[in-house]
């Protein structure tokens, strides 16, 4: 595994990013843009499921925001992988980084459970769905905090 992470650090693209004065801050900014969009759409969707903004039609509202959230997650995944790549072995050994990855997996599992129940006909306003929405809010917000702490711990 150490060799794998060291190999990532040696890729030409990654070496360029490591030494760049411009590309790295741009990737960093795009990561912030992605996680900002992701967190905003997650919060709005979950709050709608929990009963806020009742004047907005739920189905259309959720469809739009889910599309934004999935696009933003893809952007965060690409830019985050690039930020990780410059010091892959260092980050991979940090407990706070591993905590963030675990939280993302939990948030993803929570999303899949929600989608299965929605397909199975559960009303979004129901008790189980509300619990999943609260879990989603807590997990994604924790991902954000864990991510920010990578720069401050370790």
């Amino acid at each position: 595994m150490d060799g794998f992470f060291a190999g990532i650090e040696q890729l030409a693209l990654v070496r360029g990013l490591k030494a760049s004065f411009v590309a790295y801050p741009i990737v960093n900014a795009l990561h912030i843009m992605s996680i900002g969009s992701l967190l905003t759409s997650v919060w709005l969707m979950d709050l709608r499921i929990l009963g806020a903004f009742r004047s907005l039609p739920q189905a259309a509202f959720i469809v739009l925001l889910r599309r934004i959230a999935l696009t933003a997650f893809a952007g965060a995944l690409v830019t985050g992988s690039l930020l990780f790549s410059v010091r892959a072995s260092e980050y991979a050994a940090m407990p706070i980084f591993l905590a963030k990855m675990t939280l993302i997996l939990l948030a993803g599992a929570n999303f899949l459970v929600f989608m299965r129940r929605a397909k199975g006909g559960d009303e979004p306003g129901g008790g189980a769905m509300a619990v999943l929405a609260v879990l989603s809010l807590v997990l994604w917000t924790s991902v954000l905090f864990a991510g920010r702490f990578i720069g401050f711990l370790g």
Partner: peptide
């Protein structure tokens, strides 16, 4: 909690 933690930035 964040304010109390030491920061490397």
């Amino acid at each position: 909690a964040g304010t109390a933690a030491y920061a490397h930035h």
